[in-house]
Amino acid sequence: MKRLMLALMALAICSPALAVDPGEMLKDPALEARARDVGAELRCVVCQNQSIDDSDADLAKDLRQIVRERITAGDSNDQVKQYLVDRYGDYVLLRPPFNAKTVLLWLGPLGFAIAAFFIGRAYYRRQKQEAVALSPLSAQESAEIDRLMKDRN
């Protein structure tokens, strides 16, 4: 029951809605655009998996305001993000930083792609070996057959 209550409370504060409010927006459109860029990459720590721009939780609203304060005070985008990382940890970053903890995450897809390349190459190599073992056709003969096959298509 307690679990359910907590879940309901979480839902109640996290209903996705119009988040960024005109009242909190910066006058300078360039600065506001930067605030939006930063906000989209910061996780609302209360609502899972929403950026602070996408969440109407009170804390997200506060964080949006603090982001704008930092930007107005002259912080760079990275400094603003660092400001929140210092307080909430890497958890607030929707784009995880590249470090020892995330090295497998960032290199993983590349690793998959390389593995896919080698799997493909191994497949063709083995096929070639089997082909040589099975059909003692000369290169000329197989080229001839291919030509005939192509004509048929």
Partner: peptide, 8 residues
């Protein structure tokens, strides 16, 4: 709000 100290 916006709760600077609490965010700290």
């Amino acid at each position: 709000a916006p709760g600077h100290a609490s965010v700290d």
